[in-house]
Design a protein around this nucleic acid. Sequence first.
DNA 1: AAAAAAC
Length: 496
Amino acid sequence: MTSFSDLNLDPKVLKAIEATGYTTPTPIQAGAIPPALEGRDVLGIAQTGTGKTASFTLPMITRLGKGRARARMPRSLVLAPTRELAAQVAENFDNYAKGSRLKKALLIGGVSFKEQDMLIDRGVDVLIATPGRLIDHFERGKLLLTGVEIMVVDEADRMLDMGFIPDIERIFEMTPFTRQTLFFSATMAPEIERITNKFLSNPVKIEVERQNSTSETITQILVEHTPKAKSMAAKDKREILRAIIERDSAKADDPLRNAIIFCNRKVEVDVVAKSLKKHGYNAEPIHGDLEQSHRTRTLDGFRDGSLKFLVASDVAARGLDIPNVSHVFNFDVPSHAEDYVHRIGRTGRAGKLGTAYTLATPADGKYLDAIRSLVKADIPKGENPWTPPGGGNAAPATREEEDDKPRRTSSRTRSRSKPKSEDAPPVEAPAQVAAVEVRHEPAPQPQQRNDTQQNRNRSRGGRGRNDRDSGPRVVGLGDHVPTFIELSFDERRDEA
DNA sequence: AAAAAAC
């Protein structure tokens, strides 16, 4: 078994790792760090929770150790899809770069440019950014990416989901082709494949399975409910949610200590958070419409335990590393099956046990099917601890007056009936997220490139990035005008 | 049916 000390990392980095208490690299770290240190491109196929972040920060710090940043010319660049993820990478970087003199800047939206500008002006070794803000800085002429030696794309599949791929391509094209690229994605969708073929050069491909501690430690439970009317679904689910919270808080083993409650829509996040608060629960919402400072504060509160219930949109579904989350609730069944895996992966982390509830109504059938087929397993059904007043679950409507309210109004917080949190024995059967195949492919063949000329002539203006494999035809950087510069603002906007 | 990311 390798240990970090076998990995040729900078002694100062090793010291910082030691201080964190880790001794053994995770599979993605063991696979990615050695080639990354050699300067090779790396294609890492790994989920969050596999130690992915350290697998690029550690070699980056080591490799950047020598050399010095120049004003406005960062030496490395890390791209992350959300502000929170970027901030998390920055934190990780701070931890491991303690002993070094490396300067870093975090470029994310929602905060002022001023401070970010100042840092860039002084020169940074590491730039950690979300695509939008990075491009904004670039457009203002505050930033040159021609000095980037190492570029990291984290959570590429999520970037794809969020429509960032064109931005990512533009950013790739602003950096020198001589850069080293470390590229991470949980899946290899065709579009991701295309990007990696285009921008990675003879990468070392490392594919690791979802960490056991994630899948095997999560108890998944499906709670089904048939509302008397469709419009009652949300209200009923809020009742069910509280009933489960009450029941599981009182459990002897693996009791509920805290929870992330995922909703599909931002308005629903607000409604559920408000409703929980109204019922005396310590809950706060988090989603993209909230001010960044508020988002940060809320997340910090949840991390340090002062906030017990985080009601979240999918902004918090992926990548966020929050240890000690005992429960995850899918208040809504996610409409993208992969999001299910990401959401429930927020619990059961670092070897701890976790419970993931999914509240479903008959309308969710086809999404549940998609989830079942993705995880290649059934989600065990658990008991619904809430009984609607005056009747069974599937009984015909008797309280129509409540149902007929317009949707907006009825989804406002009006929940009032006390949950009947009888001690229905929790029916739990452990389910596992299907393991992803493990494949280590240390050295795939070089890509065959013979379309250099076509690439060069493409209307988007970027020269073919693949020229790298077919000889030193591209000389220097001067002939390359970043694509987005050639487009007007309107064109850029229309492209998006 | 949506979320996220730039002013």
